[in-house]
Design a protein around this nucleic acid. Structure first.
Lengths: 130, 130
DNA sequence: CCTTGACATTCCAGTAACTGGAAGCCTTAG
DNA sequence: CTAAGGCTTCCAGTTACTGGAATGTCAAGG
């Protein structure tokens, strides 16, 4: 199967698939003309990676997940630990974003948004040094 | 004032201050020996940028905010619009992260986390192609 | 048989916003 | 005088791709 068709079937772009090969996620055979030739296992891997990425796992975490994916002797505890670590990271980001959201919402509500220069948003940003 | 002291007083690292000079946020004078010499206006700018960054504004948005900051004829509407656009972007990220959070939480709860290989997290990632 | 268009290949550069490190000069305290 | 620490510049690396250029290949139509 050629890279374009793989892209269509997996939802992972051709450019990205080449990148994933570069970083060692898969090693498709090559046909005589130099084209990559993908098999079903490659497709499954790509979908797997695509879904993990969709859940926000980093490439390095995907690498670890992929290793577990191919490890018959893995334990669900190992998988769960990776997922939990990732969830913790997500929660930290959520907290930061929620803080931003609430501060910005407050400032935006307080701002008249008219043609005068006076603005609570600017005031918050420019308060003096302590 | 030397860069190290500025870093301490503004909370912006020396490395970052040099970077901000590179990208044109400030242009401190130089003393005879080549050291950067910062004045109070520089300090205020750095704090301003630091706070905007803390609220998640991109460097380019900071550039726009900084322009408004220095514009006597700005309108609060202009500021509000930038802030609103940024808030919208934050909200989009929040939605994505919340989706990830909820999916991952569900999967983690469903995973035994024991020494067996069977794992709902893995199952979700490896489901067949449609 | 030839051309044309849609594929495929590689390689290089750019993105965002710094951060780390090397090599070397300057300053200040002891 | 020396050693520590601060300052300088410049180069490379980070994340996960993405865009683009130059070139090669394949299948179909005239």
């Amino acid at each position: 199967m050629n890279i374009g068709d793989v892209a269509k079937r997996t939802g992972v772009k051709a450019k990205t698939i080449r990148y994933y090969e570069d970083i060692g996620f898969l090693k498709p055979k090559r046909t005589e003309n130099g084209y990559r030739e993908f098999d079903e296992a490659d497709l499954h891997k790509l979908v797997f990676i695509g879904r993990a990425r969709h859940l926000g796992f980093s490439i390095e975490s995907c690498r670890a997940l992929l290793a577990l994916y191919e490890d018959k002797n893995r334990t669900s505890a190992e998988v769960k630990q990776l997922a939990q670590a990732h969830l913790n990271a997500i929660d930290e980001k959520l907290v930061l974003l929620q803080e931003m959201h609430s501060t910005l919402s407050r400032l935006i509500s307080a701002c008249a948004g008219d043609d005068r220069p006076d603005c609570p948003i600017m005031n918050e940003l420019k308060i003096d040094l302590r």
